[in-house]
Every structure is written in C-alpha cells, then in structure tokens.
Design a protein around this nucleic acid. Structure first.
Lengths: 338, 338
DNA sequence: CTCTTTCATGCAATCGCTTGCATGATTAGT
DNA sequence: ACTAATCATGCAAGCGATTGCATGAAAGAG
C-alpha cells in the first residue's frame, strides 16, 4: 500500500509552494509555462492524483450529478442513462444513480442522500405514486438545479424534458381509427403521471375527431406489468362486444397482452389491432411486430444531462426554459396493419 | 439561498464543543444519551446536513462504489445494476456508474476517474477488447478492493463472480444434441472474454460426449449484434449442408437470426433448432419462444455488491475467495422443442 | 539610472469534520 | 474517606486543496 502523493509532496520536491503547484495543475494563467510543464510532469512521475474531497470541500462543488429513476431495469431507462452517462462523462461529471422502485418513500430517501452528497444538480423521473414535490424543495432552497424528465411534475418552477405525450397518444389512436377501428381500448398507467394523463388526452382527442363517443369502460388504469397484459387479454375474450383496437402505453404489457390474445385464437391485427408505446426491443421481435411510438430515450438522457451541465457552467439558464419537448414518432408495424 | 449549517453552529447554539456534536451525530458510545438526543434534534431543527467531503477527507473513505460496465443499455446489465443499487443503497453506499462502450480506451479513462474519485471499491465487467489489466493495478497497489463480474479477467489475484459458462454452454449444446441435432452451429463473441471462451468449451465438450467431431467452420466469432444475426441467417440459407441446430450466446442476436431464418422460409425448430443465452425479455415474446440460458443478473449484482461491502466492512475477506459461481439454468421453449 | 508596471510565486487562512489524547467530574471499591 | 476506575466532554491537530492578498524580481518607461 503506497502513500498518497499530495501537492505538498510535489511542492517540496521541486521547491515550490503548494499554491503554485495547485495553480499549475489547474492551468492557472499566472503560472509560467515552464513551471507548469515541470510541475505536471513531476506530478505524473510521482503518481499524484488530485483529492476530490479536499477540492470539493474547498470549492463547494462536487462535479457530480444525481439521477433518480423509477427503476433501473427497463429498456427505456437504460437508454436514458446511457445518454446521460455519455454526456456527463465527457463534461467531467460523475453520475450517482439510484432507483425509487416506484415508491415515494424510497424516492424521498434517495433525494435526501443526493442532497447530503451535495450533488451539483439532480435529474429526476418520479415514481408511480409521487404526489407532492416537497422533498425537492430542499434543492430549490439551496439553488441546486433540478430537472425532471419523462415522468415530470406539472409545476412551473421546474424545467421538464418530455415528449409530446398527448400528440403521441393522439397519433396512436388516430392510426387505429384511420384503419377503420371503432372500439379502441386504452390500457394505461396512473393518471397522476403526466405521461399517462397526456396520452389519454390524445386518445380522447382522436376519438372526438373521428366522432366516436368516449366510453370510459374502454379505458383501464393499471400498473402496465406483463401480468396486466395477460389479464386484459382474458377480459377481452370474455367481453360480449370485443374491442377491435388496443392502445397500450407500454410495449412489454402490449406484447404480453397480444400474445395471450393470439393464444386464445384471436388474430392480430384482424380481430384486434394493437399499438404499444416505447419502441422497446421486444416490439420488433414479437410476431406480428408491434406498432409503437418511438421514444427517444438516449436523446432524452443526453439533452437532460447537457441542459443541466450547461446551466451549471453558466452557459444557459434552465430557469428560463420551462419545457423541452422531444420528437416522438409512430412506427407502424404488423400488429396494426398488414 | 440559505447558509449551510455546520457542526460548529450546532455546538455554539448548545454550548457544546464541535467534537461532541460530531460524536453525538455519529452515535459514538462515549456520549450521554440525553446529549445525543438534544444534539440530534437540534441538528434536525437547524436543517443540518453533514458535509460528506469534509468527512471523507478526514476519514479517507468515500462510501462510494464504482461500477464499470460495457454498456448501460442492455437488459442484462440493467438487472445487474438494479441488484447492485439495491444492496449498496441499503448499506449506505452510493454507486457511481460508467460505461466503457466496449472500448478499452474508455475503460481506462473511467478507471482513472474512479480512482481519482477515490471509490472504496470497484465492480467491473470488462470491455470487449480489454486485454491486460494494468489499468487496474493502481487499485491493487492502494489496496482498494476490486471485483470482476460476468466478463472477468482470468487472473488469480482478483475475485470474480460468474456463472458456470462452460456448463451453460454444455447444457445448451447437449440439449440440441439430445434432440437429435447433429450439425450444431455456434455463434459467439470474442474468445478472449471468459464468458465466450467457456461457453465454447462447453459446446466442444458436449459434441465430444455425443461423439460428434468438432468442425470449426460451424463456430463464428462475431460481435453478437442484431445485424450479425441477420448476416448469419443469410449465410445459413446459402450453405450447401445446413446446420440443424444453432447455439447463439446472446438472445438479441439469436432472435434476429431466427426471425430472418423464418422469413426465408425455414421452420423453427423443425429445420433449425435455436438456443440463445441470457433469458432476455425478447426471448419470451418471439415466436416461437426462444430456448435460452437464464442468467441471474439481479442476483449477480446483489452478490457482487454485497461481497464488496462485506469486505469493506471487514466482515469478509474477498481476497480469500477466488471465484463465486452462480447457478444458471437452461429454459426450454419452442425454438428448440415443440 | 530611477520609478512604475507587470509577472510569477509564496503566505496563510479556510472549507467542515474526525479523533487521539487530556481533563475534570462522577462513581465504585475497600 | 481516599484512591482508582469510569464517564462525558473538550482541545487541537490534522485531512489536501484553493485563493485573496502580499511580495520580490524582472521589465519597461522616461
């Protein structure tokens, strides 16, 4: 176990003061070029590594961004994180990531941890049952920037990055209606979450536009799990008048529903045309391939991280921006159209 | 923007010394219970939050674990991370996560960052093209525990957490042979990686056991991407004597290969029986469902994190353990057997 | 050749917390 | 009642890097 090398060691060795060493290492303009070279090369030679804590302690900054997501093991979330990590890493920031497991309680605990870790900023996609945002006020009080993505909180004081969920919901539904479907069922999640509420809005709007009365029995609020898909399929087969279209706001759930429907002898898309959401890898491999909404996860992650970092570096003020909307896209595949 | 509360503020307010406050907050046995209560409640009242940097700086410890994975957006990796996060969080550790994007260069950079961030320990799954492990010696020199999982480096000085890839490879292949298949093709990844080398070993062993000569033309080393799957399918259709079995060491690749084969009119499993690897969600939804090896990602993450943390807390010495092998399992589905 | 700038560097305080050692106050032991 | 042991707390020295201000030397001005 070697001893840790500090700027004092370098200073002593070269007969400079620690101050000069510190400045040289940070490329301070007041230091002669020769000196800088000398110091940096000696630092390398001695195996110096800067002590982030001492530095953070002194400058009151951490170069760390906190990320809170509902769950880590989802294809969408991992794309988002991949995007964030890339951007953050390039900008010299670290990411500390935690999952709320869809519970506010855990979300609050995580928020507190992030707060204590003194992250420079926070990126959040809220849990399934988050209602208020009090646990984030600590951040705003301290002026720590906070940015919501995907699952956002409808609140003017925070910047959000989302797709136009209403438009996506509209397009998904309109697509089915355009194909002549008239009884379109809609399976979605907790309507407190913007993403689901907005998609429902789009669904209703499309119905209205096609002159079809809204039937609330065709809308089901669920947890969008794979089990729910199976359950819904069973219900459908038992219904006296079956829906001829199905818009599920999650691909995994849509797929499990679709395959169950197929097993019971229904034909996709003839009997029921299905549209999912997210463009999860499964949507492409299922048979027939699932029509879905492409959700730009990676881009969302990149933009979220970039916005936050730009703000931190004073290049941009996210307070000024209220909402950033990314482009989403309907991808038509075999589950809705031959 | 409020001012930050420190233990000095609390001390002054209660007429104690900062030392006592510090001890009380850390539940030190030498402090009277009354005093502790008094101090903790005052801390809460004043909105105190401990300064991790000052603390880390002083104790030379970070309570942070670094994780380096090849890529974030894979179903397997996200399960692993989910497991790690859960365990780490419960034990009061933070995770800082970065991806090598399958490049040693980036892996080295990430390693350096982790080193500078002074993580207490490191969990690594190496990149596709990592050859040597010199970039990790800095850790061993400093006595920072290092633990490899999944993609490990065959080196005695490090602890590894893996599944028995040879056994899994054997079972996958033997399954196909047991079904009467005689020309089993094997699509795999870089043989420098233990996971692929071992699976190949298992493949060979099964062949030997069934008295089938090894034919190296039936083994292809690829990057296991979805494109490769398509490519391989094309090759197969062009082959004069087609394989009747296919063992692909990645579900996504297997699935894209399988669907392409189906498109060209071949029947699965009649013409070609397919076995994948990982039990990725896609394996269940594809038609026919893909026979695969269940890879316990979540468990692997949990065990990796737990082992590291136990080691850090002195409850266990990972130096003593060389390899931890998790149970994997062949899941037989329609792609190999009706 | 003297006086003012400019340049390169050093001094020393500071960030907030931890901890070995010292100390005074209780309590226990005989 | 007197000494020893125990307890609760305080003192002060760090941990390593940063930075406003000061300083001595070199360069430029007249």
């Amino acid at each position: 176990m070697e001893k840790e090398v500090t700027i004092y060691d370098i200073a002593k060795r070269l007969n400079y003061s620690p101050a000069t060493v510190s400045r040289a290492l940070n490329d301070h303009p007041a230091i002669k070029l020769d000196t800088k070279d000398l110091i940096t090369s000696m630092a390398r030679e001695m195996g110096y590594r800067s002590n982030t804590f001492a530095s953070n302690l002194r400058r009151q900054r951490t170069n760390t961004i906190g990320v809170i997501v509902p769950r880590l093991n989802s294809s969408f979330v991992s794309s988002v994180l991949a995007g964030m990590e890339k951007v953050a890493n390039e900008a010299g920031y670290n990411l500390i990531i935690s999952q709320s497991l869809e519970s506010v309680t855990k979300e609050k605990a995580n928020t507190q941890t992030m707060f204590n870790s003194r992250v420079d900023g926070l990126l959040v996609s809220v849990a399934y049952d988050t209602e208020d945002i009090e646990h984030f006020t600590a951040f705003t009080n301290k002026g720590i920037p906070l940015l919501f993505f995907d699952r956002v909180i409808g609140n003017d004081q925070f910047t959000s990055i989302v797709i136009d969920n209403a438009k996506a919901g509209y397009e998904a539904t309109a697509h089915l209606l355009k194909l002549g479907r008239r009884r379109v069922m809609h399976i979605t999640g907790n309507l407190k979450r913007n993403v689901y509420a907005d998609r429902l809005k789009g669904y209703k709007q499309a119905l209205a536009e096609y002159g079809i009365p809204f039937d609330e029995r065709l809308v089901q609020v669920t947890d969008l799990s794979q089990e729910v898909g199976v359950e819904v399929a069973r219900q459908i087969t038992r219904m006296p008048i079956r829906p001829d279209g199905l818009f599920v706001t999650n691909d995994l759930c849509a797929v499990s529903c679709m395959t169950t429907l197929k097993q019971t002898g229904l034909s996709i898309p003839d009997d029921v045309a299905v549209v999912g959401f997210n463009n999860d890898p499964v949507s492409q491999v299922v048979n027939p391939a699932l029509t879905t909404i492409h959700y730009p996860g990676r881009e969302m992650g990149e933009i979220a991280a970039k916005s936050l970092i730009n703000h931190l570096n004073g290049l941009m003020d996210i307070q000024a921006t209220n909402t950033i909307i990314l482009r989403s896209e309907l991808i038509i595949r075999g589950s809705s159209q031959k």
